[in-house]
């Protein structure tokens, strides 16, 4: 039922954007009707340049995300497992985290120019904090009773990380990945748009400069689709990773 209503909502939204410019409610020059955008999209899909750009964007996005997640998990577990280190680094983390990654744009451009490397640095910087903060929460969430049990059975440090820290932190890691995936996509597109590294963002910038308005909208729709995909996939992963967690069990209707 809800799915039908939602579909109706989507269709209605598309129809509104089709009719509004046609009847002159908004200028057609700036707001091309839905059919024009979809037609343009179909045309783009047939072109090699489009797929190259998609490939570049996805590569930057996933590579950045992977590096950020790996870094975030390693650093997070290392810092989180030693209370003294955690206490000593918390103020630094709280300070570095809110620094907007776009502040780094001039720096990376000067150092690396309009390359994927530049965008990748922005992506990793922004996504890293999302993962790190979640991992730190996760490591702090270890049940004290479970920790004492592990100690009394004389599990060594490695076994404790493997059988205690990691399973407890895993759901948090997945949440971190979900948040990081969104942020990474935003910064990927931003980098391409502003720095001019190859990808969909760069195509959007080119489309704007050449006044190809429908193409611009078509490309924006594609970025939106990627955004939705990222949300859907990571939310599903989150549900799987969390299935044992009390907060998930509570959500099962009685």
């Amino acid at each position: 039922m809800n799915a039908l209503l939602g579909l109706a909502g989507l269709l209605g939204f598309g129809l509104l954007l089709e009719v509004a410019p046609r009847v002159g409610l908004v200028p057609e020059r700036y707001f091309p009707p839905t059919s024009t955008i979809l037609g343009e999209l179909a045309g783009q899909v047939g072109e090699r340049a489009f797929w190259v750009a998609v490939g570049d964007t996805v590569l930057t996005w996933l590579l950045g995300l992977a590096i950020a997640v790996a870094l975030g998990v390693v650093v997070g577990v290392a810092i989180g497992s030693v209370p003294l280190v955690r206490a000593a680094t918390s103020s630094t983390i709280e300070f570095l985290r809110p620094i907007p990654s776009v502040a780094l744009i001039p720096l990376v451009v000067v150092l690396h120019g309009s390359t994927i490397t530049s965008t990748l640095i922005l992506v990793v910087y922004a996504a890293f904090w999302q993962v790190l903060v979640q991992v730190l929460h996760g490591v702090a969430d270890i049940d004290p009773v479970a920790r004492d049990t592990a100690r009394s059975y004389r599990l060594d440090r490695w076994a404790r990380v493997r059988y205690l820290t990691w399973p407890t932190a895993l759901p948090y890691v997945v949440t971190g990945v979900r948040l990081a995936a969104t942020v990474a996509l935003i910064l990927t597109i931003t980098g391409e748009l502003v720095i001019g590294s190859p990808g969909l963002g760069q195509l959007i910038a080119t489309a704007r400069q050449s006044g190809a308005v429908p193409a611009m909208y078509a490309l924006i729709v594609v970025t939106g689709v990627f955004g939705v995909l990222a949300n859907v996939v990571t939310r599903a992963a989150e549900r799987r990773a969390l299935h044992w967690h009390p907060s998930m069990r509570a959500e099962v209707p009685a």
Partner: peptide, 8 residues
């Protein structure tokens, strides 16, 4: 609409 990266 939320999933569209805002910078575009």
């Amino acid at each position: 609409l939320r999933a569209i990266p805002p910078p575009v």
